[in-house]
Design a protein around this nucleic acid. Structure first.
Length: 899
RNA sequence: GGGCGCAUAGCUCAGUUGGUUUAGAGCGUCUGGUUUACACCCAGAAGGUCGGGGGUUCGACUCCCUCUGCGCCCACCA
């Protein structure tokens, strides 16, 4: 006998092991079944699994289990990401704290530091693997990948070289976001902005007044820029030069007219520092102006600052202002100026724009043949737009398509090189001692000595952008350097079978970081889209709607604490039901506990059915009981027929919902079916007149439908309900609705009965009739005799009624308390008086509403256009509504006459 | 500055293309229950002018406009 309460701790690990041993997660590339692929977004190999991962795993596991049960060849490929800058900064910080080494890069050197990071990654990968298992994720561990695997690194190099040859990758001096703390560039998307108050100074600059919040960059400023249409400055022409007293003496300045200047802001003119500002850089490029570096890569001033050289930014700022003030050049200080400071998303250092020689991906060059093989050439930007616009890739929810297009419109060339050590090193070599033009770009190092590899590594998204397919390349092939990228794709069975993948499921926060980059990289490198559908989940928040942060454990729910307490199934349900794609949702313990209760409810329903089997002498594992052959619906009682019918509807609803990614609705539907219908009514009604075979049939159906959501408890119960030859539930076949088992009449009759019982209970409660006291009931309905025949005993039992009288016409007579259901009216004779006026008022109101409704329906039906254009079944439905309404009005009229 | 989203019961949220749902659920609250599957349970109740205003319509939680409050994304001013 099963325990009274379900204990997930005793079940989950054992079940997971069973699945693994049965090879249930393993996909077969040689299968001729339709494939279904999900690439697991690789968690950063830096630490622990958090709730964000848990949501991702729950959603994807549901997709995959459903597909697998539907008979598809389902592959869910797990892995981890080396997370370049994130990992390096974590390890560096750790070394700084634990070993008191101020600059671990300098102290340890490249090789040693990389060794340390690799070791750290090994450990956290183990942690992550075991944590993913705890969630019940049915991913194919035999195909686990890591972005730094040899085969994946080969792909990275291949793509880099291919892009270089196509002219999509170039090296250039461009302005980049420089993080002086981590000493690396950061991509546009890896920036965060913080509001900060800092003084805003207005200085005299020759005949002009210029404003700045950053006086320390102003040494090299020798251009003053204004809008060409600004009337205040019409007497100055573009190119005019003048002498001007500035920080370190006299300089010659030049007037530049450029539309980038906002005439309304400040004085409408400014000086520019092209080396340290994106906008200034662009202005300088347009007019071919000189650029000079003022601040070095450590964040200190260069010799151009003369007496200020070597000072840090903050220190220099104050002193420069003082000096200019002394010179009489400081006109105004606005202390309340608010502006935004750019901070690195990873390193959290203040970002300083710098000009640096870097590798870039050109997003505007039109060299990609797309769709693959066509003569039309598009830029990366255009391909990215096209696949969404043409519906090749669908984004759920679709409003994110707008955001996506907006992002692409603003997209600049992508800086892919980073000055950190942890990552894929740029596959470029320079001949030692020669000019930098003597350069080799290749998958393999060049032959001969004295070649030095570029010290930079690639942006982490460069490699994760290949994730959907680089993981499918056969590692046995990648050692063979004679194979081209095309060969690798063609000869890899997994790629051929499983790409493009089916669903990319991830948080909306990395739509740009990652999803867009995968589209970019994959369409270019493989000629295929990476996935058909993008499903974006929302972010989990605390009860008060705050972000969960690791730094504040009180707000944080740790999946690894929750799982032993409530079970992985409960956690999964709590994160799926009530969550809609693209919207944030709140999670807290009561919610999880609620689904723990649900899992336990199901468990007990299972126990109950097993009990009934035992007492009924039925072996739930016997073939006869489950085959359905003996389940002849015409021989069943009404309650069983109704259940059978409702089950078929449930299968249809669940299947349809799953296919349309409506996971929340499906979860709710099953929840309410199990609890509100199966347990509260069906099992209650079956207590004395049980048909164990029907119960077993229902249980098996429910277990299958619920399995993707609650894999552990359903699999565990399955052991009691499966036949000897049955496969584990994870491999079971998804049920199909059986038309023969549908019996709408039974379902609606039972519904009437349920309504009657509820109505009686309500009356009892309203009129405080003691629960033990039995009552007489009269109910009025068209088919009362039929119902009574089968159900009066059940009604008597469940509603504590000792006499039921049914009337097929109007009820007349003694004082009664009445309750109206959709189908019948229920009267319970009472000693006291009933408020007739109130009753009448209620009926009149109902009648009014119905009449209004009828009018609307009739107007619609009277509309020739509607009747012509609408589908015939829609019109039929309207006509039925009209009929029903007329009938009901008549009925009410009848009642009103009596009173 | 540009874009997107949210506002429904005390709390957290559902509500499909406008109509039969008397606007639903879970939690919480209150009342009553040891009915031997389950107290991680059962039966019932209270609680909503669906953010404000306007419009379209026979009919609006649902569509349009507007206002208010909150949140997010992108760009950015020197």
């Amino acid at each position: 006998m099963l325990d009274k309460a379900y204990d997930p701790k005793a079940v989950e690990d054992r079940i997971y092991k069973m699945w693994e041993e049965a090879n249930a997660f393993k996909a077969d590339a040689s299968s001729d079944k339709e494939s279904f692929t999900v690439s697991m977004p690789p968690p950063n190999a830096t630490g622990q699994l958090h709730l964000g991962h848990a949501v991702m795993l729950a959603l994807e596991d549901i997709f995959v289990r459903f597909a697998r049960m539907q008979g598809k060849e389902a592959l869910w490929l797990p892995g981890t990401d080396h997370a370049a800058i994130a990992t390096e900064s974590v390890v560096i910080k750790k070394i700084q704290e634990e070993e008191k080494i101020a600059d671990p890069r300098a102290a340890l050197g490249r090789e040693e530091l990389l060794k340390r990071i690799a070791h750290f990654v090994d450990n956290s990968q183990d942690t992550i693997r075991s944590q993913v298992r705890k969630m019940g994720a049915s991913c194919d561990w035999s195909r686990e990948r890591y972005t730094m695997d040899a085969s994946l690194s080969r792909c990275v190099n291949e793509v880099f070289v291919k892009m270089y040859k196509d002219g999509l990758i170039y090296r250039g001096h461009r302005i980049v976001n420089w993080d002086p703390k981590m000493k690396t560039t950061v991509s546009d998307d890896e920036m965060e902005y913080k509001d900060e108050k800092s003084p805003f100074y207005t200085f005299k600059y020759g005949p002009f007044e210029i404003g700045t919040a950053r006086p320390e960059t102003k040494f090299g400023d020798k251009y003053v820029v204004m809008h060409p249409d600004d009337k205040r400055y019409t007497k100055y022409k573009h190119g005019d030069q003048f002498e001007c007293e500035w920080i370190n003496g006299k300089i010659t300045a030049t007037v530049i007219k450029d539309k980038a200047i906002d005439p309304v802001f400040g004085t409408g003119c400014m000086t520019i520092t092209p080396w340290h500002s994106h906008v200034d850089f662009e202005i300088a490029e347009r007019h071919e102006l000189d650029k000079e570096q003022i601040i070095d890569f450590e964040g200190n001033l260069l010799p151009v600052a003369k007496e200020f050289a070597g000072m840090g930014i903050e220190e220099a700022r104050e002193k420069i202002v003082k000096k200019l003030d002394k010179k009489g050049l400081l006109l105004k200080v606005d202390e309340d100026y608010e502006h935004r400071v750019a901070v690195s998303y990873r390193g959290k250092g203040k970002v300083e724009p710098q000009i640096k020689e870097q590798w870039f991906v050109d997003v505007n060059k039109e060299v990609i043949s797309w769709p693959a093989g066509s003569k039309k050439h598009m830029s990366l930007k255009e391909v990215m737009q096209s696949v969404i616009r043409n519906g090749d890739i669908k984004i759920i929810p679709d409003r994110f398509e707008k955001t996506y297009f907006h992002w692409i419109d603003n997209l600049r060339d992508w800086c892919v090189s980073r000055q950190i050590w942890w990552g894929h090193r740029v596959p470029v070599w320079y001949k030692e001692g020669s000019a930098s033009s003597d350069m080799h770009v290749g998958v393999e190092p060049p032959e001969g000595d004295k070649w030095i590899q570029d010290p930079d590594t690639l942006d982490t998204w460069f490699s994760s952008g290949l994730w959907t397919w680089s993981t499918l390349i056969d590692p046995k092939l990648t050692g063979d350097n004679s194979l081209s990228l095309e060969d690798l794709l063609e000869k890899s069975p997994d790629f051929q079978k499983f790409h493009p993948t089916s669903v990319m499921e991830t948080g909306y926060d990395i739509l740009f970081f990652w999803v867009a980059r995968m589209i970019l990289m994959t369409t270019y490198a493989t000629g295929q889209i990476p996935f058909d559908t993008v499903y974006l989940h929302g972010l989990i928040r605390t009860r008060d709607g705050k972000k969960m942060s690791k730094s504040d454990p009180s707000t944080c729910i740790d999946p690894l604490e929750v799982i032993p307490q409530f079970g992985a199934d409960a956690l999964r349900m709590s994160m799926i039901v009530g969550q809609s794609p693209g919207n944030d949702f709140r999670l807290y313990e009561e919610k999880i506990a609620g689904y723990r209760n649900f899992v336990n409810k199901l468990w007990n329903a299972g126990r109950f059915v097993l009990m009934k089997c035992e007492s009924g002498g039925v072996n739930p594992g016997s073939l006869e009981a489950i085959s359905g052959k003996r389940l002849v619906i015409s021989k069943m009682n009404l309650v069983d027929r109704a259940l059978m019918s409702e089950l078929q509807k449930l299968v249809e609803d669940v299947t349809e919902g799953m296919e349309n990614y409506k996971l929340s609705e499906v979860g709710e539907r099953i929840y309410s079916f199990v609890w509100d219908y199966f347990c509260d009514w069906y099992l209650e009604l079956s207590k004395e007149n049980a048909n164990p075979e029907v119960m077993v049939y229902a249980m098996r159906m429910i277990l299958k439908l619920l399995h993707p959501y609650c894999p552990f408890v359903t699999e565990e119960l399955w052991a009691s309900f499966k036949h000897g030859d049955d496969v584990p539930l994870i491999q079971a076949e998804w049920p199909k609705a059986d038309e023969k088992l549908k019996d709408e009449k039974a379902a609606s009759d039972l519904q009437i009965m349920i309504d009657v019982i509820s109505a009686i209970r309500r009356i009892r409660s309203e009129h405080s009739i003691e629960s033990g006291k039995k009552v007489n009931v009269i109910f009025v309905t068209k088919n009362s005799e039929e119902l009574l025949g089968e159900l009066s005993e059940e009604i008597k039992r469940l509603a504590k009624v000792d006499n039921i009288k049914a009337q097929s016409s109007k009820y007349e007579g003694e004082n009664t308390a009445s309750a109206f259901t959709k189908h019948v009216e229920v009267h319970v004779p009472l000693e006291g008086l009933i408020d007739a006026e109130k009753e009448k008022e209620k009926l009149t109101k109902e009648k009014e509403q119905l009449e209004k409704f009828l009018k609307g329906v009739q107007a619609k039906l009277g509309n020739a256009k509607f009747v012509e254009n609408a589908a015939s079944d829609v019109v039929e439905k309207e006509k039925q509504k009209e009929k029903d309404a007329i009938q009901k009005i008549e009925k009410i009229n009848g009642k009103l006459e009596i009173s």
